[in-house]
Structures are given as structure tokens and as C-alpha cells.
Amino acid sequence: MINTSNDRNELIAFRIEDQEYSVDIMSVREIRGWTAATPLPQSPDYVRGVINLRGTVLPIVDLSARLGLGTVEPTPRHVIIVVHIGKRIVGLLVDAVSDILAVNDDALQPVPDVACNIVQSFLSAIITIEDRMISLVSLDKILPEEELVAA
């Protein structure tokens, strides 16, 4: 039983409202509960502000707002997924973490052609497991775009 680990992907699945999304487990550093963020002036609505992660100033992206699903009012039940994006560390605010998935490359299907640009630019694939549909988020576009270019 040779498991070709090359095309094996481990993903962390999470919920935003009733939709399911996932990110590559390798980019996840930790998962922690919501704490109040310090808002940043003149920032896009999906940047909730910054929190103190053991001495590091961590920006928090409201993934719901980023994906065009509207800003959330975070409660202590909300979760921050701390991920690496390039050299940066960023917190993603989501409703709840649901699952760890192990899927093969061939289970990753292209994103169906829908009209919404936001969906197209932030998702890299979708995964179908039984009657669930889980979208794979591509992290490199999550931060405000021009800044990533400038940096």
C-alpha cells in the first residue's frame, strides 16, 4: 500500500455561515478563540484590526467580509485561524473549524464558472465529499492586493 504522499493534501475545513471552506493545513500555524481587535484607521472593511499574538502584532482578516458575505459581529465562539501568507502571519476570522480533510489531487475540482469575481479570485478549487461542497481558499490574495505587490 504505497501512499503517494505527493498528491495527498491535508486541509483544515471551516464554516462561514452555512458555507464550507478550507485552507492547506501546512499554512496554518495555530487556531485560537476570538479576542477583541484594535481597529486600524483607513483600512478596508474586511480588516478587523490587529491583535497581540504573544508579542507579535497580528492583522485579522474577516474572511466572511473578504469573500463578500458581509461583515460578522464576532462573538467568543468565533475562531481565528492563524496562517502564514508568504512571510507574513495573518489571522482569519471564521465562524468555526469543522474538519481536517485528507484529499487526493484528483479530488480537487476547478471552481465552476460563476459570475462572482470575488469567488473566482479567492478560491482555487472545490472538493466534493458526499453531499458537501468545500471550497479551497487561496491565501495569497487575501490581504489588500496593492500592498502585497508593494511589499
Binding site: 490587529v50 502584532v57 492583522p59 507574513r88 500592498e147 508593494a150
Partner: peptide, 10 residues
Amino acid sequence: KSLEQNYRKV
């Protein structure tokens, strides 16, 4: 603490 490290200049 730098903001640029994980975010950008604000």
C-alpha cells in the same frame, strides 16, 4: 512593534 511586518504601513 512594527505593523509592516505582518500587514502594511497604515
